[in-house]
Nucleic acid binder design. Structure first.
Lengths: 400, 400
DNA sequence: TACTATTACTTACACGATGTAATTATACGG
DNA sequence: CCGTATAATTACATCGTGTAAGTAATAGTA
């Protein structure tokens, strides 16, 4: 019988990794930071902070600012996150578009590349991904940073530790060993993860996350998905499909239906679903070809202009999005709910109304924000994951 | 400005705690266990395992079995979780009943005590809790174990680290510093937590949890609640109100209602809600006083006897419970969903039908089980928390 | 300009933890 | 009874943190 055990052990070197991770995280979030301040806040002795900082400087994660800070007498030497210490490649592998970026570890994009409507699948998609990465590798890097790793967000179920894409319908990939292939091709550390998971990490590190430990990112685009940051750490679920909120049910009748490609909630509040409902409303009053071109964006524009037909569509979207957020918040009690994806560009219409509905029901309302990274969220999360991977990120917690 | 940082640091002693926790957890789940086996599985050197085991034996958490195991040549000395090494007091503080138990750390009850319909609130409730604890302290302990701590599960929102009951309507406690009061009174380490959270931990340690790292416990009783174990660790949420699933919404109309005491889902699938609906069905066909006595149990009994009226009530319960489980699983992707609370005694009726509904919708179905601890779940979780607290439980994780 | 007080940093060393390797103990099987 | 294999023990190297004492920097002050 296989033994059952859940918790891992650590060595002295890993203890250092835990502490190094905490210091790096502190500096990233609080640049510029002083050693003595960190020693105080992080409850480490000054010599330990010194040693860790020396290591971080040596490895290019952190650097002295040159500036010194007055705090009573001898000035503190200030340190900052060394954004340009390393370069990283992140790719958001969409079903219809691919978006790749070469960026520094501060999340500043050096060079980016979009392929719209690539229309590929299977091996052709892989070839296109390789081409994008190659171009980004070749892009000029003013400060001469080395590329430290590649992370890819895939639209579908992934098994992140193994780096396998289990099932990505739009690319027609099944059990696709993407990480292994990329590592062999580029000889760099690679991470493969779900696109929405990475987007959530991106917002935590560089976007609307703002130091919160419990974050839900809801993306409303072609489909609907959620990324969960729980107690500071990305949560993937038992079979790595946590956050597949497209399948959420909002009424009893939905129990009797079948959902092959699109889930119940997805068919209502995704961009696709919104456009679909608009077509039903406008059927007959517009020519067929115009009807086919309607997007969610058009619906919100019409709503802003006060066109009557859009009213019901937007109302329904507001209601079902509210139900989803209420149910997610009820279950998870996050500090922050971030709205992302294409539809979030219409947040001016949605957000105030959703907020009102939520406050009406929930005793404790999470903060509701719009993604600040937009379509770059996944790529930013990719950068975060490369930092996790290459800086040996460990975290420790005490229970009870 | 307050610095932002999320992750803690550890010292050499805390590294030992991480490893000690892993070893203790291994032995608890795999008694009897051999040192050399643990060294292999946990990736620790044998000397380290030896030292940790010596410490655990000395402190009474573990003991040699005396039995030896053959594995090719020299026999292994087997160790087991020392159930009787310590005694612990756990109390489930219900709104109508209080249930306290003196148990060993293996979750075996030495002495238990129920007070039904105590009808107290405020300071009187505290006095009754103290009386229960005192009686349990005085109960004979054959093996002479010392009581190591007290944990209390409260029916309401708690702030567990501080041990404050924020709001428990049935006891009329607000911002009640329970932990502080108990520690002063009994001079023992005390833990205060939400009753459902503790029940989830109880099932993880001693019940249906079975080594799973991602568990959702749904309790259906007077109200409805959920306890979440995420990546092996109890998750409480940003304001410690994760899992308050009584408020889950199942249709659009519910958005416009007000929920003061009972949430939307709660008013349908809780024991109270089931009985209430049965009363509506039977109004007129039964005398008023008989009607008032109907319980959820009666409804399920009638269903088993094939009485027509009960059909609709049970169907509705099945459907809304299914929706709740589907939505929770969609979001969290747990390995295991456990049904607990009074209504779970009718799981023979509910479970097969719920299972069928779930499988129809979800691509990946979590295992569905009935609580094996029943009304003792909270108390068992209380025991687990005392072990966490008094054995200095730490866990470490690597990201990416 | 020198002295003082104060805070930042450095160094030396103690301590606590893990790991490796050599040694001893135990038990089966021929 | 001995050989072999595995378990447990011991001694010691290594790696990490912490404490304490010493050095450096700097504003204020005499």
């Amino acid at each position: 019988m296989m033994p059952k055990y859940v918790f891992r052990t650590i060595t002295a070197t890993e203890m250092r990794s835990v502490n190094r991770s905490a210091v790096l995280d502190y500096i990233r979030r609080n640049s510029p930071a002083a050693r003595s301040m960190m020693a105080h806040d992080l409850k480490l002795s000054l010599p330990t902070v010194m040693r860790i900082v020396d290591e971080l400087i040596e490895k290019g994660w952190v650097r002295p600012t040159g500036v010194k800070e007055w705090s009573g007498s001898r000035r503190r030497d200030l340190l900052e996150y060394h954004k340009d210490g390393h370069a990283v490649i992140g790719v958001d592998l969409g079903g219809t578009k691919m978006f790749g970026a070469l960026a520094n570890i501060g999340g500043e994009i050096i060079s980016e590349l979009t392929v719209n409507g690539h229309g590929t699948s299977g091996e052709a998609s892989y070839a296109m991904l390789v081409e994008i990465v190659e171009k980004l590798c070749a892009a000029p890097r003013a400060r001469g940073q080395k590329i430290r790793g590649i992370a890819v967000g895939a639209p579908g179920v992934t098994r992140a530790p193994a780096g396998i894409v289990e099932w990505a319908p739009s690319l027609n990939w099944r059990e696709y060993p993407l990480k292994e292939k990329l590592e062999r091709q580029f000889r760099l550390p690679c991470v493969v993860d779900n696109d929405v998971n990475l987007a959530a990490l991106g917002e935590q590190w560089f976007g609307a996350g703002d130091g919160a430990s419990n974050i839900v990112l809801i993306t409303l685009g072609t489909g609907v998905g959620a990324g969960l940051i729980i107690d500071g750490v990305l949560y993937r679920g038992h079979t790595e499909s946590a956050g597949e909120v497209g399948l959420l049910l909002s009424n009893r009748a939905e129990l009797d239906q079948q959902y092959d490609k699109f889930g119940a909630l997805e068919s209502i509040i995704s961009g696709t679903g919104i456009a679909e409902r608009a077509r039903t409303c406008l059927a007959g009053s517009l020519p067929e070809d115009r009807l086919a071109q309607i997007t969610a964006q058009d619906v919100f524009d019409a709503y802003r202009r006060g066109e009557a037909w859009s009213r019901a569509v937007v109302d329904e979207t507001v209601d079902y999005l509210s139900i989803a957020i209420i149910n997610i918040s009820t279950l998870l009690d996050p500090e922050l709910v971030i709205l992302g994806g294409g539809v979030s560009e219409s947040a001016d219409v949605l957000l105030p109304r959703v907020q009102a509905r939520i406050q009406n029901i929930l005793p404790k309302t999470p903060t509701l924000k719009v993604s600040t990274l937009g379509r770059r969220a996944t790529v930013m999360g990719a950068i975060a994951q490369v930092v996790h991977l290459t800086s040996d990120y460990y975290v420790a917690r005490k229970l009870a």
